Amino acid sequence: MAHPHESISLDPHDRQGVHRRDRAWLDARWEDPATRVLAVAGGRARRTGRDEGGGPAWVAPGEAPDGHRVLLGERDGTTYAAVLLDPSAVAEDDRSWASLRELLPAVEGHPDAPLVLHAVGIAEWVAVTRFCPRCGAGLELEAAGHELACPRCGRRQFPRTDAAVIMLVRHGEPGSAEERCLLGRQAAWPEGRFSTLAGFYEPGETLEDTVRREVAEETGVRVGQVEYFGNQPWPLPASLMIGMLAEAVTTEIVRVDDELEDARWFTRAEMAEQAASGELVLPGGISISRSLVEHWYGAPLPGSW
Rank of each mutant, 00 (worst) to 15 (best):
R134D: 13
A269C: 03
F229Q: 10
L197D: 01
V256A: 10
A275T: 03
A45K: 01
W58M: 12
G278P: 07
R75Q: 12
W189L: 07
D22S: 05
I253L: 06
L168F: 09
D257Q: 08
R20L: 08
G53V: 09
Y80S: 09
A127K: 05
R50Q: 11
L104T: 03
E74F: 04
V256C: 12
W30Q: 14
R21K: 11
A248C: 02
G136R: 10
R180I: 06
T129E: 09
T129P: 11
T35D: 07
L183T: 04
A28C: 05
S291M: 12
L72K: 07
T78F: 08
A272W: 14
L168C: 15
A89F: 06
Q274R: 15
W305C: 06
R222L: 15
R155W: 12
M167P: 09
A238N: 15
Q274N: 05
A238H: 13
M167E: 15
G285D: 15
P4D: 11
S176M: 00
E178L: 02
P133F: 05
I8L: 11
P235A: 10
S99L: 04
M241T: 05
H110M: 03
D14M: 08
Y80T: 04
L240N: 05
G243S: 05
A57Q: 12
E63S: 15
L71C: 08
H13K: 07
A216T: 10
Y297Q: 03
L148T: 05
E227S: 14
V223S: 09
G53L: 08
L139C: 05
G55K: 01
G53R: 05
W305L: 04
E279F: 00
V37Y: 10
E124I: 01
M1H: 14
F194A: 10
Q186H: 15
E63W: 07
P300Q: 00
D112T: 07
A60C: 11
W30H: 14
V169L: 02
R268L: 01
R180N: 06
R170I: 12
Y228A: 14
R47C: 11
D112A: 12
F266Q: 08
W234E: 08
T206A: 06
E147G: 00
M244P: 04
S7V: 02
G230L: 02
S289C: 13
A106P: 01
T48G: 06
E124H: 15
R29F: 04
R29D: 07
A177K: 06
L141Y: 02
T129C: 04
G220Q: 03
S277Y: 02
P105R: 10
V37F: 10
P174D: 03
P61L: 14
R290G: 09
E294R: 02
S99C: 06
V128A: 10
Y201V: 15
R23Y: 07
F194M: 13
D258F: 06
A198Q: 12
T48A: 10
R101A: 14
T251W: 03
H118C: 12
L197A: 07
M1D: 14
V83D: 01
R36I: 01
H13I: 14
E270C: 01
L183A: 10
S291L: 03
E63Y: 11
E142I: 00
L10T: 09
R155F: 13
G199I: 03
I166L: 14
V116L: 14
E214D: 10
A263G: 09
A272P: 00
H19S: 13
A106Q: 04
G49T: 00
R75H: 13
T78H: 11
